[in-house]
């Protein structure tokens, strides 16, 4: 269909827990990109989750776009990952990147595949 996306990956040199992996949609008919998804480390608080720093995922919402806010203002706390490598694996699964293992060799290794309820 010709839709175009852009992925960015950043990790802070000083604080390895400060990372960001994001997916942007690049419209063909108007300027600017829209961040659809952004996996973040526990770099600090979020306006929706004060008092604690959590691993969290920003998601674009129609309501935010309609209100003229940053599309990805909404964020949800996640326990799907606890490090950059785990976040990258979770992100690639979430966006369903084809041949992910070929582009990122070994990215899915080392994840225990624990689900909620497996933890003791």
């Amino acid at each position: 269909m010709g839709w175009k996306f852009h992925v960015f990956m950043r990790i802070n040199e000083k604080f390895q827990e400060n990372f960001s992996i994001g997916l942007e949609y690049v419209p063909s008919d108007e300027p600017g990109n829209i961040v659809l998804l952004r996996f973040n480390g526990p770099h600090g608080e979020h306006v929706l989750y004060p008092h604690h720093a959590h691993y969290h995922i920003h998601e674009a919402k129609v309501d935010a776009i309609a209100a003229g806010l940053k599309p990805e203002r909404y964020a949800v706390v996640t326990t799907d990952y606890a490090s950059y490598p785990e976040a990258l694996a979770a992100f690639l699964r979430r966006i369903n990147l084809g041949d992910a293992d070929r582009h990122f060799p070994g990215v899915f290794q080392g994840t225990l595949g624990l689900k909620e309820g497996d933890r003791r």
């Binding site: 000083k14 604080f15 961040v35 952004r38 973040n40 770099h43 600090g44 608080e45 979020h46 306006v47 929706l48 004060p50 920003h58 806010l69 940053k70 990805e72 203002r73 909404y74 964020a75």
Partner: peptide, 19 residues
């Protein structure tokens, strides 16, 4: 955050809600 390094937790947020 690290020995000798304090992160300031203040109600100052970016447009995407991150502090």
């Amino acid at each position: 955050r690290r020995p000798g390094i304090q992160q300031l937790i203040a109600p100052l947020f970016y447009e995407d809600g991150d502090m």
